[in-house]
Design a protein around this nucleic acid. Structure first.
Lengths: 162, 162
DNA sequence: CCATAATCGGATAAAAATGTCCTCTAAAGA
DNA sequence: TCTTTAGAGGACATTTTTATCCGATTATGG
């Protein structure tokens, strides 16, 4: 829900990119996806689109790779979604009446409006920098859990499972 | 966004059903879709699922058709969505980290949470009765616009377009 | 009990989304 | 200049979603 698979790859890819390149060095795809579950070849296609949309810069050949076209805090979720899916059309009527829009609202339309507005705000204000930071925090979190699990394993060596 | 095509058909179909059967008489598919853009055969499949999910009752043969399995105000959007897509998984991390959930949240997760909660509330509180009422209001609205357009047409008979 | 009328359910098709592979092109460095 | 390295982009494969069709099944009414 909310995002398509392709869009999610774009989001994750950009978050990884922003998180890994401390300075503004370019990063290669192979490096970017290592340690993640991101599908290398498909992400390549997605990144091509992001390059054309102006969110990424790419360089061929040796020392090539990808860089953010502008600072991470200036790339929003909205930018990403629109680069992939085209203009966001959250304005459609929930009931599905095509002639329904902000100028000709149905009651349902108005009920849904505040939610839609919140979503829009979220998409417009959340940046790749936020995502990268979230990603790092989360990765640290996962690591801690793994360490604790390993410690537990040591104390219970009888159970050979996994 | 938000709903898949199939889910939207389900929503629209149920709204039509609730709006057309003043009492609890059953309605045939052909009658239901007449005057709408709902695809008859595909909706038939969708309705089969809703029957199995317990939202609709169906009757074969003469005098058959579909009825709501319970009062319109007791069928929520959530019920519909889950009948089609299975349990709603709005809880996935926006960043796409699979190990992220309410017990192991990442920062992004918490930012998105209030929106998700609002969406859930909307799905849980909006009923087929609401949708049917919205639909009727809207249909009346469209009719008024058509009439006004026709009046305008009479005053400008030179323009033969349409 | 037969003709009719309606959904059910299987088969199939068409379209869109997702995923993979391979060659071309551009850039860097020896 | 030649070789290596990286993304670009076309072709193709797979999967999922959406759509259509038709015979089977079930019920009604004469």
């Amino acid at each position: 829900m909310i995002f398509t698979t392709t869009t999610e790859y774009a989001i994750r890819g950009l978050a990884e990119l922003a998180g890994r390149s401390s300075d503004s060095k370019s990063i290669m795809l192979d490096e970017l996806v290592s340690g993640t579950t991101l599908p290398r070849d498909f992400l390549a296609k997605v990144f091509q689109r992001l390059v054309k949309a102006g969110l990424l810069k790419s360089a061929k050949g040796r020392g090539g790779g990808f860089t953010l076209a502008r600072p991470a805090h200036q790339i929003t979720l909205k930018d990403i979604v629109e680069s992939i899916d085209g203009p966001i059309h959250l304005d459609r009527c929930a009931v599905g009446l095509d002639k329904c829009n902000d100028h000709q609202p149905c009651p349902q339309h108005d009920l849904y409006k505040p939610i839609r507005q919140r979503l829009k705000d979220y998409l417009a204000t959340t940046t790749v920098a936020d995502l990268a930071s979230s990603l790092k925090t989360k990765q640290a979190w996962v690591k801690i859990v793994e360490i604790k699990a390993a410690e537990k394993e040591e104390k219970l060596p009888t159970n050979g499972k996994h």
